[in-house]
Design a protein around this nucleic acid. Structure first.
Length: 491
RNA sequence: GGCGUUGUGGCCGAGUGGCUAGGCAGAGCUCUGCAAAAGCUUGUACAGCGGUUCGAAUCCGCUCGACGCCUCCA
């Protein structure tokens, strides 16, 4: 029997603001869409956190035996900057500044994105579609929405008519807003607008002469609005109605709100059953964001090349650190917190390494089934990885007690225990067992110390010791050379 | 200003109306020639003020603070 029939998941649905039983549209299958990055610059650690949160979700579904179709897009058609009416496509702007092709920008940062996620051990999605690869689909959706009277064309651009939509539907259903409030609280209007209403959003934008990314359409040579791509691609690959849509909390409004409105207008059905939003990674008390410069790059964790870091950390430790917080909580990033996680991580891995050598006994003194279900209960409760990790540390205590022969497990229980422990750590949490941190500086110092001790032995004519040091180092691959200027070594 | 989230012991970070989350640090113990490491044990915290309740950190109200969104954003 598949595990998913035994383990029932509850998911916090942003649409209802409460935990709901997860019931897939088709039993045994899960359709999941996650908003991917806009590839106009390097992803920062905050971006990684969000994708990692959904990596956890994906991994757990897979572990339970669900057939998952996980779609995560690449936004390569940029977003508009500043005022939408005069704004410029981000990718196009970057390309113009760097005097390269827009697709070079896209290619460079897409490759970077993939490299980063691989280092943090994120599984690739099943489909990773691009916005520019779905221009035709987007145009078709716009046509349909215009036909239904919920969008209008002005000067070659097309806008979604939010007020009209709101007559029959609720624009703001996801973010808990009322369109009336929004109208009354409009910020200072900047300049003249083509829009009938400030809340309207672009489905298609006419390209200005300086725009280098453009496609033909019935309305103008131009480019699609940002929100539309996700509707086009999720509909195409997951259907008009699918199970889960995820993304960062900051996309809830307006991006996801607009997606709901478009999709409903287009398909006459609410597109998503469970909306999930991952919370922000905070640095210095503020959200990480490229625009403010308050961020840390994933690579900097690994190289230690950032002033706030005391040293480099393996990527998997950063992963462990982030999974120690629930995905819906804001998480504070700091060197101290990372160091604390590092110690806990090694404790966990030491236990795993000891687990291999434990011998079974005739009977069990530990209720393995209860402990195992505790692991599942944690994940079933809205993917609560911190609780799971706490449960795994209970497992660490059990392992230590087994090593000390204070507890025993039958061979069957031991098998279950080992299997569960490994599955949750490596398959579900996606951690990697980094046993030793390769630190060439430490190695250097160690060898220098041995050289010094050997030289003292030579001065004392303690040839037995000095030769022992040289020969044993040599056996380990460290070769000493006595030169006129002193002793050096090679690896 | 509007909408929403949140405020937990030295630090990070879970959580439920009554029963010790967990990690790090600290303390005690075991082990050990000494030390370290490792293991075990230990922490009565929940912004403030009211209210509901037999009982609230957990529900409600107010105050104060923090954060997110309202413009691109994971």
């Amino acid at each position: 029997m598949e595990l998913y029939k035994q383990q029932k998941i509850k998911i916090y649905n942003s649409l209802s603001n409460q935990k709901e039983d997860f019931i897939p549209l088709i039993e045994g299958y899960v359709g999941m869409y996650v908003c991917g990055p806009t590839v106009y610059s390097n992803v920062h650690l905050g971006n990684v956190r969000t994708f990692m949160s959904f990596d956890l979700v994906y991994r757990y579904f897979k572990h339970l035996g669900y057939k998952v179709r996980y779609v995560r897009n690449i936004t390569d058609a940029g977003h508009l900057e500043n005022d939408a009416d005069v704004g410029e496509d981000r990718i196009a702007k970057k390309a113009r500044l760097e005097e390269i092709e827009p697709m070079e920008v896209v290619q460079q940062y897409t490759v970077d994105f993939h490299n980063v996620l691989r280092k943090f051990n994120l599984l690739p999605p099943n489909i990773e579609p691009t916005a520019t690869g779905h221009i035709i689909e987007q145009i078709e959706i716009i046509k349909n929405i215009i036909d239904k009277g919920l969008a209008y064309e002005v000067n070659g651009s097309v806008y979604f008519d939010v007020l009209k939509y709101n007559e029959k539907e609720h624009y703001g259903i996801l973010s808990g807003r009322n369109i009336e409030d929004a109208i009354h609280n409009t910020r200072t209007l900047d300049g003249q607008s083509e829009k009938r209403n400030p809340q309207d959003f672009a489905l298609w934008k006419k390209a200005q002469p300086e725009h280098i990314m453009r496609w033909p359409s019935p309305w103008s040579d131009g480019f699609p609005g940002w929100h539309l791509e996700c509707t086009a691609m999720s509909t195409k690959y997951l259907g008009e109605e699918f199970d889960i849509h995820g993304g960062g909390m900051d996309l809830k409004f307006p991006h996801h709100e607009c997606e709901i409105a478009q999709a409903k207008a287009h398909n006459n059905v609410s597109p998503v059953k469970y909306w999930m939003h991952g919370n922000m990674l905070i640095l210095n008390g503020k959200k990480m964001a490229k625009s403010t410069g308050n961020f840390i790059l994933p690579e900097e964790i690994i190289t230690g090349d950032n002033d706030i870091l005391s040293k480099p950390f393996p990527a998997t430790i950063a992963r462990f650190f982030m999974l120690q917080a629930h995905y819906r909580s804001i998480l504070d990033f700091s060197n101290d917190a990372l160091e604390a996680s590092e110690k806990g991580y090694y404790r966990l891995m030491n236990a795993i390494n000891q687990l291999k050598s434990i011998e079974p006994s005739k009977a069990s003194t530990v209720d393995v089934g209860l402990w195992r279900q505790g692991c599942y209960d944690a994940m079933n409760d809205d993917f609560n990885s911190p609780i799971l990790i706490a449960q795994l540390f209970e497992g660490v205590k059990i392992i230590n007690a087994l090593v000390d022969k204070k507890e025993t497990l039958s061979s069957k229980d031991l098998e279950t225990f080992k299997n569960t422990f490994n599955v949750f750590i490596f398959d579900v949490l996606g951690l990697e067992n980094v046993t030793s941190v390769d630190n060439s500086e430490v190695l250097n110092n160690v060898v220098e110390l041995l050289i010094k001790m050997r030289n003292e032995a030579r001065v004392n004519k303690n040839w037995a010791l000095s030769d022992q040091i040289r020969d044993e180092l040599s056996a380990m691959g460290v070769h000493l050379k006595d030169g006129k200027e002193g002793t050096t070594f090679t690896l």
